[in-house]
Amino acid sequence: MKPIYLAFALCLFAGLKTSPVLAEQQTDYAGYDRFDVRAAHRSMPIAASVWYPADTVIYKAPVGNNIIWKGTIAYIGAAIAPGKHPLVLLSHGSGGNMDGLGWLSSQLALRGAIVVALNHPGTTSGDSSPRRTPFIGERAADIRATLDQVLSNPSFAPYIDRQNISAIGFSLGGTTILNLIGVRFDQTLFAQYCDRFGDAAQDCDFLRKGGVDLDHMPNDFDVPSRDDRIVRSIAIEPGMGFAATEQSLAAVTSPVLFIGLGEEEKWAAADFGPTGSNLVARIKNASSANFAPAHHLTFLDECQPNVAEILKEEGSDPICTDPPGTDRALIHRQIIDEISEYLALDAKAS
């Protein structure tokens, strides 16, 4: 055997030795895979990911890690644990992405769920535009198309409990999830909210900087998108709550959990309590939980060491800077526990 091939063979067998295929179900890391979603309303495939309880495994690797984010370790392409598992759909916020929420997806998978996330074109990392942000109907259609595909995918469908489908969204993702359970958003109400709060409204400020005419939003902003396959939902710091119509809020029948972050540094755009849009009191099956000290961006992944200081020096968004006294990892664990209890997942699995 030639030296180069011998070296390759030794590396291959060494890799198999350090990452063996095991017979028992794995409970230290979740399984992870990816697939493309073909959607009629999009010109290109939508990137989607799936986290799940792993059975036999091949190898593990970090997902979503880079010079800013820590990312999450997963068993790539592992077999799925036998049985029927609850399905959780996950929608990221403006400028976010599916792998950046791996800290949440992986832990829900370790507690028994199959978590399907996706990258929304036009509002995902590296492809996020203010003028494409108001297309709430397109985002909801992304979720519906992803749900259609995963339920027909022979690799995943046999493991899904079709009677136990939930949806989680953060920020603009929370807006998307509310739209999917029947909430509609009114252009006039949104313009009035932006006039009232001015630049203090983070979503309005973002749209204005992109040249969006807040008095003439796209028709897609207020389309109906209800999907009755979703039996419960979680809206984490959802945006655009002031634009929700009273009639649509009154018609919501499925349970909704609202999760807030922080107290003194509450974002106007995401305040669903009595000092804000008061969504939690206007939906009859709504409940809420709040975690502090924290703020809106605390929900994002944990950052690499010293990144917060570097971003501050560069004048970048404070995505890694939390309020004094905040323990981002602790807030994440508390959110995981809250969501797991709400979804009746196995808290002992992690």
Rank of each mutant, 00 (worst) to 15 (best):
Cys194His: 06
Asp195Lys: 06
Asp195Tyr: 04
Arg196Ile: 02
Arg196Gln: 15
Gln202Lys: 08
Asp203Ile: 12
Asp203Met: 12
Asp203Glu: 11
Asp205Met: 07
Asp205Cys: 00
Phe206Gly: 02
Lys209Ala: 14
Val212Pro: 04
Leu214Gly: 01
Asp215Trp: 10
Asp215Met: 03
Pro218Asp: 09
Asp222Thr: 10
Asp222Cys: 06
Pro224Asn: 03
Arg226Ser: 14
Arg226Asp: 09
Asp228Ala: 14
Arg229Trp: 13
Ser233His: 03
Ser233Ala: 15
Ala235Pro: 07
Ile236Ser: 01
Met240Ile: 09
Gly241Arg: 00
Gly241Ala: 08
Phe242Gly: 08
Ala243Arg: 04
Thr245His: 12
Thr245Val: 13
Ser248Thr: 09
Ser248Asp: 06
Ser248Lys: 05
Ala251Leu: 08
Ala251Trp: 11
Pro255Ile: 00
Phe258Ser: 04
Gly260Ser: 15
Leu261His: 07
Gly262Asn: 12
Glu263Ala: 10
Glu264Ala: 15
Glu264Ile: 05
Glu265Ala: 14
Glu265Cys: 03
Glu265Pro: 02
Trp267Arg: 06
Trp267Asp: 11
Ala269Arg: 02
Ala270Arg: 06
Phe272Arg: 01
Phe272Ile: 11
Phe272Gln: 01
Gly273Ser: 11
Pro274Asn: 04
Ser277Ile: 04
Asn278Cys: 05
Asn278Ser: 09
Ala281Ser: 08
Ala281Gly: 06
Arg282Gly: 04
Arg282Phe: 07
Ile283Leu: 13
Lys284His: 14
Asn285Glu: 08
Asn285Val: 00
